[in-house]
Design a binder for these strands. Sequence first.
DNA 1: ATATAGTTTAACCAGATGGTTAACAAAAAT
DNA 2: ATTTTTGTTAACCATCTGGTTAAACTATAT
Lengths: 208, 208
Amino acid sequence: MVKKSKKITDHSAEEKILAAAHKIFTTKGMAGARMQDIADEAGINKALLHYYFRDKEKLFEVVFLQEAQKFFPKINMIFQSDLPLFEKIEKFVNEYIDEMQENPYLPWFVMNEINRDPDNFLYKVWGKNNLPQPAKFLEQIDKEVKAGNIKRIDPMHLLMNMISMTIFPFIAKPMFQRNMRMDDVKFKEAMEQRRTEIPNFIIDSIKK
Amino acid sequence: MVKKSKKITDHSAEEKILAAAHKIFTTKGMAGARMQDIADEAGINKALLHYYFRDKEKLFEVVFLQEAQKFFPKINMIFQSDLPLFEKIEKFVNEYIDEMQENPYLPWFVMNEINRDPDNFLYKVWGKNNLPQPAKFLEQIDKEVKAGNIKRIDPMHLLMNMISMTIFPFIAKPMFQRNMRMDDVKFKEAMEQRRTEIPNFIIDSIKK
DNA sequence: ATATAGTTTAACCAGATGGTTAACAAAAAT
DNA sequence: ATTTTTGTTAACCATCTGGTTAAACTATAT
């Protein structure tokens, strides 16, 4: 009993559904997404959605966890690495911008669901044992401050600043684009610049 | 014919609706909000919503514009004022934090709707003649750079950084609260600190 | 008092939406 | 070859939801 392809379409239906659901969910949010839209986008019958993924909630969960569970561990690894502070900042910013260039909807998606049902959502993403561990990063900042290598700064605010500057422009993309008259190309260019602009901005602020 | 109160309830129904709609819209977004929820929250019959505000779209528009149209001009005034750069930064950050302490839902609301239908939404908020005018602010930065008063920096990125650091923590509040184990009091404290932390962080970064 | 204009409600309606069903088609197993 | 399993569809259903209607109620004007 070979487990090769069963029909012409193979298992691609499931994949098409996931891709379609990804797109619809992330652009319209959970409440705004229509199962029919997802089916149309995937080019299949609506009933198939329920065949592969019991209901809307389940489909949503699969789609999202798929993305989140491969990204957040990366960030955690950076936080917990032994890199020098400035390099760590640079790596963090670059890793995040990588992710958001590939999945421009993700930050929006995350914020959306975090607001909808914080506890349930955050549990799904990080689970019991996959919590973000900024502790080491915060301690590292504290150590550098005490060693007199950088200026006095509250590590929490530094972390908040870094995260905010990195993520927010992607969430507020339409606003920035409109208010600063940027087309998609120009916006992408700006985000590429931020790979160095943000670390430089931070380092300029805290270095002595 | 005096135009005083027509009945016991006076015009409070309309106000109750607006308050209720405000709450529901901002917590659940346009798509997630139910007219029935709004009616329940206001303690009135659903049909009254349509009596006072033709339909959901109109109600939404009124609720939102009410908030936005009194806030954005304030920001514009700061942008266009003749304050020195550092003071302007401080004022901008403080004005924004004021607004978000009062209306913690607003930034989320704005982001939500901006993503739903950028053009229509941004037109409603800023209209034809109420566009944000960061130009003067950007030029001011440019001037200070050229005068050699501050370090070389792209004004656009500086603006993005400032806005991001100010707004994002409010949008991502549940995430920060969970990941950094902050209760509501601690979070509010942190945001109060940011009134000075953010300007200091920026100024430290750009001053020579 | 009675008419009038404004306010509020219960009941209802049409369309959208998530989800189900039963039948059919294609592979795989026997 | 035929039976079983897996994949797919059209048609359908129950419920939700935005919106309407017609009737009742309230305060004021005449």
